[in-house]
Computed example of a mutant assay.
Amino acid sequence: MKKIYSANNLMEAQIVLDLLEHAYIPAQIFNQHAQGVAGEIPFTHAYPEVWVKRDEDYARGKNVIETYENTPVAIGNVQCPSCGEENPANFQLCWKCGGGLEVAGHRQP
């Protein structure tokens, strides 16, 4: 096993874990309960960590994480092509009708 990522919080660690698992890279979160003792131990020891289970997946996992870190955050709104409802630009499905928002040409900045 190798540590591949130190997250700022448990939610971020879970996102990275999910991304790795979607890429068929088995991984595990450590220190998921350590934030409760921050202050009693050095804060860097309380950060959640993501570890890959197979050392040979490390390089591929780093690429997955690099893509995640370099993906711009979508801001603004997009109109649903199915029902016309306005949705935040980072949504993939319309909150009102459940229609897909990833239709080419319908993204607005």
Rank of each mutant, 00 (worst) to 15 (best):
C80K: 02
K96V: 06
V78H: 02
A59P: 07
I41F: 12
H33A: 08
F43T: 12
N8H: 10
K3H: 05
H45L: 12
E40P: 02
E40A: 09
N77M: 07
H45N: 08
V64A: 04
E49N: 13
A38G: 10
G100Q: 11
Y68G: 11
G99Q: 03
E56D: 14
W51P: 00
N77H: 13
A46K: 03
I25V: 15
Q79T: 15
L10K: 05
R107P: 03
R60S: 08
C94V: 02
V50M: 01
G84H: 03
Q28T: 13
F30G: 03
G98F: 05
A104P: 13
C80G: 04
P26R: 12
T44F: 10
Y5H: 09
E49K: 08
T44C: 13
I41K: 11
A59E: 07
L101H: 02
K96C: 04
A23E: 14
G76V: 00
N8E: 15
N90D: 14
T71E: 08
T71G: 10
G36T: 12
G36M: 03
D57Q: 03
V50C: 01
R60I: 13
R107N: 07
C80F: 02
P42T: 03
N77A: 15
E102G: 02
E40I: 08
T67F: 10
Y58V: 09
F30M: 04
A38K: 15
C80Q: 00
G61F: 06
L17C: 06
N8F: 13
Q28M: 09
N70E: 14
A38Y: 07
I65C: 11
A38L: 14
W95D: 05
V50F: 01
T67H: 11
R60W: 01
P81R: 01
G76K: 04
L17W: 02
P109I: 15
A7G: 04
A23D: 06
L19K: 11
F30L: 15
K2N: 09
Y58P: 06
N90Y: 13
Q79S: 15
N77P: 07
A13N: 04
I75K: 04
D57I: 00
V73G: 00
V103M: 01
Y5E: 10
V73D: 10
D57W: 01
H33T: 09
K3C: 14
P109Q: 15
A46M: 07
E69H: 12
A7R: 07
L101Y: 02
Y5C: 06
H22K: 15
D18V: 08
A89D: 00
P72N: 05
G99Y: 03
Q108P: 05
S82H: 01
G36K: 09
Q14V: 13
L19P: 05
N31G: 08
E49T: 11
V37E: 14
N31F: 12
T44Q: 15
P72V: 07
M1A: 12
P81F: 07
F30T: 13
A89C: 02
